[in-house]
Structure formats: C-alpha cells, structure tokens
Design a protein around this nucleic acid. Sequence first.
DNA 1: GACTCCATAGTCTCATTGAGATGGTTGCAG
DNA 2: CTGCAACCATCTCAATGAGACTATGGAGTC
Lengths: 184, 184
Amino acid sequence: MAKDLTPSQLVVLGLIARNGPMTPYDLKAKVEGSVGHYWPIPHAQLYRDPPRLAELGLLREAAEDHGRRRRVFHLTDAGRRALRDWLADPATPEPETRNPALLKLTFADLGAPGQVAELAAAQAAQHRRSRDTYQELRDRLDPDAPDTPARTRLITLGIAHEQSYVTFWETLAADPDGTGTPPS
Amino acid sequence: MAKDLTPSQLVVLGLIARNGPMTPYDLKAKVEGSVGHYWPIPHAQLYRDPPRLAELGLLREAAEDHGRRRRVFHLTDAGRRALRDWLADPATPEPETRNPALLKLTFADLGAPGQVAELAAAQAAQHRRSRDTYQELRDRLDPDAPDTPARTRLITLGIAHEQSYVTFWETLAADPDGTGTPPS
DNA sequence: GACTCCATAGTCTCATTGAGATGGTTGCAG
DNA sequence: CTGCAACCATCTCAATGAGACTATGGAGTC
C-alpha cells in the first residue's frame, strides 16, 4: 500500500501523466497556468517533490541529453498506479477556506464604529471585480476547445462563489449593525 | 509600527479582548466553538502564540493565584492598539480555498471512466448534507440573542456556498463528460 | 573566437507550522 | 486515602512557506 501522498505530490504525478516527462521548471509553468489558481504550490516545492517521488519509485529521473542536462522526471508504472488509486477513491477531505476578511468581521465590534461598513464596501467591490473577471474569462473561452465544457463549469462555480460574497458584503454594507437602520 | 501579526495571533488578541484574560486552554475551547470553523488553529499554536505576543508587549502574562496557577494572559494597551490597527485597515488578503475534490476532478480523465460520475455523486451528497446542517443551525438560532443577525448572515453565506457546490457536482453527475449524453 | 548579458533554471536557508505523541495535575468517586 | 478520569501543557520532528541567492548557457556583439 502506497503511503499517503500529499496533494502537491499528486499534482506532480498528474501533470507528468498528462504532459509526459517534465523538469521541475516545466512543472512550475504548468502549475501557474492552471491548478495553481485553486491549489497554490510554492515553486521550491516542485523541486522537492519529484526527487522524493523518485525515491518512492513513482517517478524515474533522467537527464536531458544535451544543453543544460536538466533533470527530467518520467512516470513509472508504480506512479501511474498510485495516481489511479487516488483517482479511484471518491472519498476526499473537505474543502478548507481561509478568509481573512471574515476573521476581521468577527472581531469588528472591538474596533471603531463604522469600520464594518468600510470593510463591507471594500470587500463587496473586490468580489464584484473577481466575479466580473471570471465572467469575461468564461465569455472568452474558445468554443471549439475540447476542455471548454469542463472549464466553463469550473468558472461558473467560481462566479457563484463570488456572487455569494458580493451578496453577503453588500447586505452588510447596507445594514452594518443588523438593526435594520441603514447608514446615513 | 508593529510588525505584521499572523492571523492566529490576531485571533488570540481578539478573543482576549472580547472575553477578558484567558489561558491557552481557554482559548482552545473558544476557538473550537467559533472561529475554528472558518479559521482552524491547531491547539499547540495556542500555546505558542501568547508567549510570543507577551514578548512583543501585546499581552501580559500572569499566574492564577490559586490551584494550578495556570498562565493567564491579559491584553495590554499596546495589544489593544495592535488589534485596532488591524481592524481599522479595510484591506485584507484574498480568501484562499483548497478543495481536494476539485483537484481530483482536474485529473479525473487520467483514471478509469465512470469515476467522474462517482466522485460527483459523492461530492453532491456531502455538500447537500453540509447545506442542510447549516440550514438547521440557522433555524435553531435564539431569536433574542444579540448576535443572531450577524450569525444568520454568516450562516446564510455558508449555505450559498454549499448550494453552489451542490449545483456544480449535480450538473457534473448528470453529464460527466460534458457531452450532453447523460449516463445510462 | 571571445565577451557579456539576461532569461532561464535551480538551490538554499531559516523561521514557522502541523500533527500528534507524551507528560503532568487535580479533584472527585469509591 | 487511593486511583482514575478529565484537564492542562509541552515536546518533537518532519514538512512547509517565503524568498534570497546562485548558476547556466545561448543570443547577440565586437
């Protein structure tokens, strides 16, 4: 039984499975462009994980045969199996959200009055911006690309989340004390 | 200028500001019951942060005067100021969500066919459950408690988020490949 | 052919964190 | 007055996060 891999290790396996052999630097580029949006991985980690996975026999390390002879990592059969095992298990840990603004809101009553309204206004604006960005992104998707349906769904999820925040903060901005008395 | 405090340190300051002097153990109990839901803090951290904050002059350490003489931490004026400064700044880092299920979905095409549907079904069920739990929680709130409006708003936000997930995963369960051809 | 510059690529360090095992205390039941 | 259950606190160790720092090689220049 393979001992549990970390999410970043699974991302490494997954990216190599999808794109073929890669160097840590290649991985860095791929992560930034995609998964990184909802699963940030510091670049140094992408230099630490592959050698570790090679030790476990899930990757095989080779050197480029010309130029800088960078370390290229290939997927092994064991690696592909580990990836499959993970994918085959529909059980997953719960999502974890860390929202500094909500934290601030929790303690807002300890600060000066009026700050809730300010915070709420700023947050509402920020989330409106995010929402609109996602919307543009969705509109711009190439309708012929094969992964467009998948991406569209994901972006739609993002929009829904942002919209929830917008509603939340706008409500709060309109009635910061929950008294039903709007700010003057 | 106070150097930046970590979120967990600010939670400590906030909880002590609200509840009066506390021991790390007290903090642990408070965190579990409230902030912990949207900002998890491992309990050991609540033994590390207060002494650190005392070094910075933001808390003052005393010993209980009877029994076990536990370490009780009081807020200092500097501590209250640090908390106010933080609260006064409406700028906050963006929320960060880490969702292992989305990660799995990203690489689902590398596994066996049919797994997307399974994953989606499991996720939809789980988020339906969370959503319903929140709904019950909201229904049970004491209508006379002073913080009920604030809590209600927060829970409503949670419900909206869960509902977004439910919609997302249910869509996916109905049409795992995005082909418009539902599973048999 | 030698040089130098810069985008590319990789390594290192260090404080902090996360996870959880382990070690004491105290008061109360029997 | 003894033992045990609930409390309370600390420790360890690998892993992480942040970001400073170093190295490489090929394109363009003279």
